[in-house]
Amino acid sequence: MERSEAAMTPPKGPPIRLSALDPQFSREIKRLAGTDFHACLQCRSCSGGCPFSDHMDYMPNGVMRLVQLGLKQEALSCNTIWICVGCHTCSIQCPMAIDIPGVMDALRERALAERVAVIEPDILAFHREVLHSIARYGRTHKLEIMLRYKLKRRDLFSDLDVGLRMLAKRKLDLTPSRIEQIAEIQKVFRP
């Protein structure tokens, strides 16, 4: 069978500099993620099944290779870690039982700790608004999350129709559902 053009095209990411290998980084991600990505045999089942791989610069199997080699800069700055939604479609198919989204979680956290430029700022802004809401009410207040997210992006009008349809159907509560012992939640958010 002839191989398709796509299968022979190297992945889209930037060229890899082997001089930049950082084994310490590899160990750190393994510890944080709690899964052994060195077992990855590059079968690509993960990338074949990932519903969002079309929108990623490195495929999930590529990210496994980056962390195996300790290519820190590439791993922390790729958009894959932000596009990944943690649906586990990949890990359920992985013959080596690697927790692939666990690796993505660890990389995202490192990227923030090391202040790497985030290539998908809107996705990060959304996550921050969700956490802000939980810190404030103990639960998520969807209307406020959406409004604050849109204000930050200075874009109130995209998706306005969706918001109005949800309001009309009583899907967005105006007031938050909140917990009583909010001090207990503040304990969680204290650094």
């Binding site: 943690g86 979680d105 990060l124 969700v130 956490l131 939980i134 639960r139 917990i179 207990e184």
Partner: peptide
């Protein structure tokens, strides 16, 4: 007085907060 489990966002950017929210 249950609280949010952390949703996708907590474990996406802070594993400790995600763990604590679930544990409460």
């Amino acid at each position: 007085d249950w609280n949010c489990c952390g949703s996708s966002s907590a474990h996406s950017i802070d594993h400790r907060i995600a763990f604590d929210l679930a544990c409460r």
